[in-house]
Design a protein around this nucleic acid. Structure first.
Lengths: 150, 150
DNA sequence: TTTCAAGTCAGGAATGATTCCTACATAGCA
DNA sequence: TGCTATGTAGGAATCATTCCTGACTTGAAA
């Protein structure tokens, strides 16, 4: 969702992240979409407003924002990192057809825990659940392929 | 765990995978360890027995085995694919310190499901749960660092 | 408001994992 | 045993990401 410039600045300061035009633009682009873009996607989006923007700055900034906890990195099978401006507890549906990533909010999933025995001394700080399958569109596309074959 | 050569051959045939020395060696190496090695790790291991083995063959073979369902690819934050010869339902504990990946078997976790509303037309085929935190060794290492600072 | 140092940025080069290309070799069927 | 689709080796190419360096800003202090 759209976050106002002042709010972006406030969040940066709250997380001790220096405020720059580049960072604000990257963070704004990331929070305005729910599509979990790649660094390259963000680079292309932001470059439209700031043609001097370098890929390097995008990577560097994403690293800074991630360390500050303002951004989450999502890694799902395709060896390209994808980013998420939503850092509240949530999980993902991943389409094996089109690689789309959709958010799932579910309190039950947030509260999964391991028994002491299973944790084997591991100190668990958090967890993620990924559901894999096919989105509605990819299912329809598949059905159409089948029909055409008949 | 160690899988006998005949059993490897049988599994390959059952999954319509051609049997070659290279493939058997790669699959054997992967099933003998619980360390979730990278393609590079496997390449180095197998090259000891078969010095002509090429990295390419390792990647190609892992692709074949994965498609056949004999191997699982695990992707966890570090942008390097890691592989798992255990394809039964299980989940992972991931150490943020040493990147170690440990298996978790838990029926409760295997049975997670989404409500119809949350699935939003998504056809779910499977899911994975990753727990992130610090393994026992990394916790101790951290404590020692703290002590030294005192 | 000016000054200054720490922290950022741009651009290009470097790295590392993975994939592509191609000629040769082999598995598995007839 | 011979044929043919498929697999293998090795090197080149690609792609995401990181490193390096010098110039530029930000933010805090004077």
């Amino acid at each position: 969702m759209k976050v106002h410039p002042q709010e972006i600045e406030a969040r940066f300061r709250r997380h001790a992240v220096r405020v720059t035009r580049q960072r604000a633009a990257i963070y704004a682009a990331l929070t305005e979409t729910t599509s979990h873009p790649t660094a390259e996607d963000l680079y292309r989006t932001v470059k439209r407003q700031q043609p001097l923007m370098s890929r390097n700055t995008v990577y560097y900034t994403l690293g800074v924002l991630r360390q500050a906890g303002l951004v989450r990195e999502v890694n799902v099978g395709h060896h390209v990192a994808r980013f998420d401006g939503n850092v509240t507890a949530h999980h993902h549906l991943i389409c094996l057809g089109c690689s789309r990533i959709m958010d799932v909010m579910d309190d039950g999933l947030n509260q999964l825990a391991l028994s002491h025995r299973q944790a084997r001394g591991f100190q668990v700080l958090g967890h993620r659940v990924e559901f894999h399958g096919y989105c509605a569109e990819c299912q329809h596309a598949q059905e159409n392929v089948m029909k055409r074959r008949e």
